[in-house]
Each structure stands twice: as structure tokens, then as C-alpha cells.
Design a protein around this nucleic acid. Structure first.
Lengths: 187, 187
DNA sequence: TTGAACGTTCAGAATTTTCTGAAAGAATAA
DNA sequence: TTATTCTTTCAGAAAATTCTGAACGTTCAA
């Protein structure tokens, strides 16, 4: 693996973006490198390519492991471990979604529910609780929905994506033909 | 406005979460405060409630303004500015999505497209380009789709959300009744 | 025109996050 | 056993981010 300008720009950009997705720059760079490398890479090679210390590479790979985004491989006769990404780009995106849900959404929903259970001590708290309930319901909706989308087959998801806002038409159409039957009941 | 334990826990949690949504802890706290306060707040009050400096409040409000998440209000006879959130919780979520798309997705898509246009200098770059194309297509799909969902009416969006994975059934149903017609064409 | 009450800015301080490299652990072969 | 080659850990260093508060700008009333 060689650091050409093309590969550098990709790796550095994903380093910056990484922090938006829940991990730091180095972790993002390591991941970017593994994604675009056809061959699995060993820790030393990663460190050399990115110009970071061996310890940092180790921590980064550990982090990526906890996200289940990398796989360890052994080459016969080699003692070193080689790393590469697992699954398709889709699988990876799913895993990031899933992991962020667990780490961010779930604790937030729990907190909001706890607050909703409390007795409001005054009108200010009552108003706050009302807002918090709205936020909770929205987040819960989005969370459940995205989760159910993830269980859809890739083909169906693709159809759905291609539909775009045309999905509105499909809903109308379905409504008309099913008559009284509420499509929501099919969920 | 008073800092009760209930309000504190909400505000602090959203401070932590804020960093995941693209702004820092203080900005998250200021926003949380404005969301659950029925009355608009002035900058001094915000600073006092959160125990942060006046300058920090000013910077935080500026940041929230750039996200179009707060509105300035003037009370008659008052020289101070009062701040509160604009629109419903849904509107706010939309605005955050929209803003993140502009700040993160668009630049990423541009970079990936640029790389896709380059000539691959060797087989390694060719492989990298292939992966980058996959990533680009996925991100573009998701971006366009979420954008088109945002243009849907709130009721339709709600129906869709409630459908959950049941949307798969609706797609099958539509397929059957439309026969040869590919629903994707309606998009 | 002065002073009071507000808002903004930004250099440097404080804090938080990330990274390094030395030490220690583990596997293997001789 | 010892040497070799790899990995991991973590205390402290380095870097990045955030925050403070003083200086300055603006508006308005007297």
C-alpha cells in the first residue's frame, strides 16, 4: 500500500469526518485506509502510512473492533495480525448506525423517560416535561423506524430509496385500494 | 426560570449529546435551556443559569443562530435581546439534519466525486476508486432520500414511520397491482 | 457628552482530548 | 531457557478545543 495524493486526500478527509461519526481523527484515518486497501494491513504498516505511533494504532484498532468494523486475519506462517474491513459498504453503514443507536439514542431515551416519570414540581417543570415528552416521542419514532428499515431486505430498501418522495404517491394509492383498511395496521 | 434537578439533568445530558450533533457542550446546554423554557431568555440569564461567562453565551447564541435554531425577540421598552427556539420539535430536527447535510455531506460528496474523476495511477488506486465510488453512491442515495422525505407532508411522514418494516408489504402490494410498471419510475 | 446597559470579539488561560513511547505481556522458535 | 517479534497498556506530553474576561462597540436617556 502506497500513500498517493488521491489516497491521502480520502484518508485525511475521512479523518476529519470520523469525529462526526463518533470516533476521533486517527481512528477515522485508520478505517479509511482499511476500506480502500484491497490487502489486509498490519499494525506497523498502518502506523508508517499515517505517521502515528505504534501505540496509537493499537488503540485505534481496538476502538474499531468495539464497533465491529474490522476483522483480524492471520497469514499462514506469519505471527503478525492483519486487519481489514468486514462486509459491504452497506453493512458498515448499518453497523455504525446500530452502534450509535446503542451508545447515544438508548441512554438519551432512558433519561427522557425517567424525567417523564417524575412529578412536576411547578408550572415551569410541567412545561419542560411536555417538551421533553415531545422530544422523546420523536426520537423513539425515528429510532424504531430506522431499526425496522434495517431489517428490510437490501432490494426493498433500494426500491424504497429510489422512490424518494414518490413514496407519498404509493401511500395514497395503497389507501385507495385498501379502502377502510389502515395500512399502519400492517406494521 | 429556575435550575431544578430535573431541568439540570436534561440540560447537562443534552450538553454531552450536543457534541454528537455538531456543536459543543455549552451550545448544547444553551439550546436545551431554550427548548424547555416557555419564556424567552436573555443572555445574562442564560449565563447565570449555566454558570458560564457572558462572552461564552454570546458565542453560543451566535452558533445556534448560524444553525437557524434560535430566534431573537425584543420586549417593548427593553433594550436586551431575548432568545427562544423556533418552530416545533420536528422543525428543529429537520433544521439540524439540513445543516449537517450542508456542512458534512455536501463537502464529502464533492471530494469523493473529485477522486472519482481522477485517473487511477496503478491497480491499488483503481481498487480504491472502486470503493470510493461505492461509498459515494451510498451517501448520495441516503442524502437524496432523506431530503425527499423532508419534503413529504408531516402526516404522510407519520404514516410512513408508523408503517415501519410494514412498508415492505406495501411495496409488494404496489408491485402486484401496478404489474409491469416499476414503482421506482414514479419517483 | 456622559454614563448606563446591553452586545461582540479575541488573546491567552483552562480544560479536554489525543498521542507517544517506554514498559510489560504473549506467542513462538531454537 | 533465552531471544525475537509481535501486541497492549498507560502515565505524562502534546495538541486541540473551549472558555474567560477585559476591551471595545452601540444605543439610548438625561
Amino acid at each position: 500500500m502506497q500513500m498517493t495524493p488521491m489516497i491521502e486526500s480520502f484518508v485525511y478527509h475521512f479523518g476529519e469526518m470520523g469525529s462526526r461519526w463518533g470516533f476521533n481523527r486517527t481512528v477515522g484515518q485508520i478505517y479509511a485506509l482499511l476500506v480502500i486497501s484491497e490487502q489486509p494491513l498490519c499494525a506497523n504498516e498502518i502506523g508508517d502510512l499515517l505517521g502515528i505511533s505504534r501505540g496509537n494504532v493499537s488503540m485505534g484498532l481496538k476502538e474499531l473492533g468495539s464497533w465491529q468494523l474490522v476483522q483480524v486475519q492471520h497469514k499462514p506462517g506469519e505471527r503478525r495480525e492483519f486487519y481489514h474491513t468486514r462486509g459491504s459498504i452497506w453493512d458498515m453503514a448499518n453497523r455504525v448506525f446500530e452502534e450509535r443507536r446503542k451508545r447515544e439514542m438508548d441512554p438519551t431515551l432512558t433519561l427522557l423517560r425517567d424525567i417523564m416519570m417524575d412529578e412536576a414540581a411547578n408550572p415551569e417543570e410541567a412545561f419542560a416535561q411536555q417538551r421533553i415528552t415531545e422530544i422523546h416521542d420523536l426520537l423513539e419514532n425515528i429510532t424504531e423506524w430506522t431499526q425496522s428499515l434495517q431489517s428490510l431486505s437490501p432490494e426493498k430498501l433500494n426500491t424504497l430509496m429510489k422512490l424518494g418522495s414518490g413514496v407519498g404517491k404509493v401511500l395514497e394509492f395503497t389507501d385507495k385500494f385498501l379502502g377502510k383498511k389502515d395500512p399502519a395496521k400492517q406494521a
